[in-house]
């Protein structure tokens, strides 16, 4: 007999996913890896959105629709991010984050 899935389960999963994302963003040297980790954090937030919507307002689909919008915006953002990365690579011949310190004060 299995216990039914509660909101906490979803939140634990989302929290783990978010921590993995944070860990990746802090440790990856490659900017592409960092971008992917950020995507993971996005998705953790998305899971929260959908889960809250399901458990707190089960009658509607507002949260799920919002999650779809977030994914769309994230996709658009990743496009911009990859475009910037490409520009940086062309200028500096590197994709490692520690080599970018142009904005250093």
């Amino acid at each position: 007999m299995t216990a039914p899935l509660t909101l906490s389960h979803y939140m634990i999963v989302a929290g783990l996913l978010f921590l993995i994302g944070v860990f990746g963003a802090l440790t990856r040297r490659n900017i592409i890896g960092i971008l992917m980790s950020i995507e993971l954090m996005f998705n953790a937030a998305n899971i929260n959105l959908v889960a809250f919507d399901r458990f707190l307002h089960p009658e509607g689909v507002t949260g799920q629709a919002l999650a779809l919008f977030v994914m769309t915006v994230a996709a658009a953002e990743i496009v911009v991010g990859l475009a910037l990365l490409l520009a940086i690579y062309r200028g500096t011949d590197t994709v490692y984050a520690e080599d970018f310190n142009l904005l250093k004060g």
């Binding site: 440790t27 960092i34 984050a97 520690e98 310190n101 904005l103 250093k104």
Partner: peptide, 13 residues
């Protein structure tokens, strides 16, 4: 260490 975006991010976290 100045200019390290990941370090900044770490402090934020």
């Amino acid at each position: 260490k100045e200019g390290q975006v990941q370090e900044y991010l770490m402090y934020v976290a």
